[in-house]
Design a protein around this nucleic acid. Sequence first.
DNA 1: CTGTTAGCGCTTTCAA
DNA 2: TTGAAAGCGCTAACAG
Lengths: 323, 323
Amino acid sequence: MVNIKDVAARANVSVGTVSRVLAKNETVGKELRELVEATIRELNFRPNGVARGLRRSRTDMIGLVIPDITNPFFAELAKHVEAIASRSGLSVLLSITNDDPKIELAQIESLLKSYPTGLIVVPTQFGASKGWTSEVATVAVDRRFTGFPLISVDHYKGAGLAAQHLLELGHTRIAYIAGSADAPVSRERRSGFLDALISAGVEAEIVEGHFDYVSGETLGRLLLDRPAHQRPTAIATASDQQAIGLLRAASDLDLKVPDDVSIIGFDDIPLANLVTPRLTTIRQPMEQIAARAVAAVIGTGNTPLQDEYLEATLVVRGSTSSP
Amino acid sequence: MVNIKDVAARANVSVGTVSRVLAKNETVGKELRELVEATIRELNFRPNGVARGLRRSRTDMIGLVIPDITNPFFAELAKHVEAIASRSGLSVLLSITNDDPKIELAQIESLLKSYPTGLIVVPTQFGASKGWTSEVATVAVDRRFTGFPLISVDHYKGAGLAAQHLLELGHTRIAYIAGSADAPVSRERRSGFLDALISAGVEAEIVEGHFDYVSGETLGRLLLDRPAHQRPTAIATASDQQAIGLLRAASDLDLKVPDDVSIIGFDDIPLANLVTPRLTTIRQPMEQIAARAVAAVIGTGNTPLQDEYLEATLVVRGSTSSP
DNA sequence: CTGTTAGCGCTTTCAA
DNA sequence: TTGAAAGCGCTAACAG
């Protein structure tokens, strides 16, 4: 492989000069710069990032640690993180934890060996992940990671938006499908939803499961398989995946959405806009979240390392209507 | 940060010895080995992968280049690749191309700077991606990449399985929703399907679109929005996403699946098992594909660098029945 | 503005 | 079986 020395020799300059044009350092004279650039192209020189990384004790990579890449929500996050990082000349090191704190710790230790510029992690849902020591700039996304700044949608306020929407539509017999009470995120969403209802003097029936399709379907059946006058006229869920499972339960029971029951989700995953009927939901500004996370981690200076809460928005589609 | 020299000094051995116990080299005496191991734990030494990479001109990473991580099919691939690589002590460098050959080339060039052990790439669908030069072991997955070995399901035979299933069910008025004719993969699936039909003396109506939900829905409407006697009794699609879009079209037209029309997809993405009705489809052995790809690239010796076609299987669920 | 040079932390000969 | 030492290719500090 051709290296910086070869280029220097061929162009009759020093390696320092080549290094400087590589770094777009303005202190190189126009003539030399052009000569070196030509030589680089001629020899098809590709700078060795590993050597660069060793010298600077920091590579042009950022680590992205997520629980599950097949979860559309995290896939969306990964997509945007990759796109933004790429634009800044950074590669993405992907690690998947399966929501297992043990694996998470091992993965992070492993990533750290590559001396990434930063670390973006969506921590495991349960259990305090043990910390680690490193100088690497780190942010947590979506879920709190003790000791690190958090970038996340405001789960509490977002869920409040859902409650408000249902209330405005005139619903009073409302149910809520929550995520696991052990997960802080689902507790926040749940409180946000219930508190908004309570301020309006409305109570809700609550059932609890996980953030997945199956949970939504099972719990949905529980809620819907009863005589009409006992059935909620509206159900909110803690995630779109649950809402989509719920849609399925409704369809199995020959209930029309939104005529027989209104449904509202949370997240706005791509699929939400593709199911029948299209799902009314609370949208997380994923691209913005990704952008803030990357910025925080590569420290564009203007970005202090502190918590940031972004606004969720209500997206009204076809799954909600007046009772 | 503590380095190998610190460990050596603390343990009163040479750096060479520390390096050898790190490499699990058996030529280190038991006593010294244990001493060094204890010292490593004591000092919380984390070997610098970048330095190691420079010295060996190869890092413990593999590059994974895919068109779109939000596509459930590729997400599944990424998940398994990450899991398997991780087990071998390798990290995954993720690159996303958006099916754009220009971006693909740039991403690969960029990955190469990190001197990965191997490269797994799902090439862009259209246009001959320009090649590149490097010593890095490379395999293509799912789609052919000129000059590199391909690991893929047998699209042709898989689609034949779908045709056979429909035939066995007794269908004769059959339609096929194809992917773009410009994409080799969709051409293969289409030929596989049609050839199997032709050998049975059955013809099919073919419509062509893309591998996505929207295409399935649009083309599905085209096929289904007609009087019963002109309507196909069964429709096969080139992808599950199309099939799911098609499901939606059927539901919009108040057609029951599979009573009014049978539907069969291709891929077996996770969602296929969650829609209503559950989707009959052709399953790709993703985990196996990922395993072979990783093995090929890290060259476990027993794995020659050559094309490998894996078997697709029919998964019968609720979306197909006799006409 | 440009050249020289000392390492970054590790692996791997080569000797002992 | 262990130690000593030469770099891997690059950046950045220093000198001119």
